[in-house]
Design a protein around this nucleic acid. Structure first.
Lengths: 143, 143
DNA sequence: GTTGACCTTCGCCTAGACTCCGGGGTTTAG
DNA sequence: CTAAACCCCGGAGTCTAGGCGAAGGTCAAC
């Protein structure tokens, strides 16, 4: 079986090779398929999944979007917009929402950090826990 | 039954009253007990849990520590240190670790934010998704 | 004395993103 | 030909912090 009888010239991959190429596990590929992030692939007569290597690019897209903080559901939406010709405005709106979310998280964490910094600075770190200013501060924080 | 036959003078609460006083659900109280954050309470003859209101303070401590980003396991450690006379250094070390963790999260989020800001700014938001700079940027990011 | 509010345990459900397992069938290397 | 490596599917398990509900016992009020 040489380079084959399909109209596509791209490499045709089994799930294992695809997974390796994309840097994910086999289960992850099947999982993405179930979640609708990857289309159902063709099958061999034995039922094996067969992929073109455009699928590897799709998985890499998913990985990068994940690194930007998008959830799989959000990524599924991004992919649907690509697949079915959505509008730029929709993509930008998702990006903007994510940005808002991230900004909110950052402020939260900064607020927490400043409290923890104060606590950490207030404690000598010597002796046993009785009268530990950290514990006492937590005990008497506004609820 | 007036204010009672126990050596403690504090109010004795059923789980429902305790939960209400502490601002959590009943299930949460039982869950904290299972997780070792609350000691096993006394029981009435019928098997009802009975708490002194020091327990409410303990739950409030848990809630505040949670707000500072500590996990329940970490809080359990803090409580053990209080209960069994740990050292200030241990408390401070936990605080310091949490601080490091939070700083790491903040830098992560800031990095992501700056990417998303660039992406958002690069997109006109007009027209359909073909050639959307956000999509393209994600497609060609370094993996 | 009976309703309704409260309590008990047990065990399953949630979200997010996988990951592993078991019991098969298939393909490939030697 | 056979053993290793690969693939299939369905389902269960992981982690966090609880939520929910059933089936049944108790307690307080009217």
């Amino acid at each position: 079986m040489a380079n084959n009888n399909q109209s596509k010239t791209s490499a045709r991959l089994t799930i294992g090779r695809l997974a390796k190429q994309a840097g994910v596990g086999i289960d992850t590929v099947r999982f993405y398929e179930r979640r609708g992030l990857l289309p159902e692939p063709e099958r061999t007569m034995a039922g094996y999944r067969v992929y073109g290597d455009d699928t590897a690019a799709r998985i890499l897209f998913i990985r990068r979007a994940k690194r930007l903080g998008f959830t799989l559901d959000e990524i599924a939406t991004l992919l649907r917009l690509q697949d079915h010709g959505g509008k730029k405005a929709e993509v930008r709106s998702l990006t903007q929402h994510k940005l808002d979310e991230i900004n909110a998280k950052i402020s939260d964490l900064k607020r927490i950090r400043s409290v923890l910094q104060d606590l950490s600075a207030s404690c000598s770190g010597k002796g046993n826990v009785d009268g530990c200013p950290i514990i006492e501060a937590i005990s008497s924080m506004p609820t």
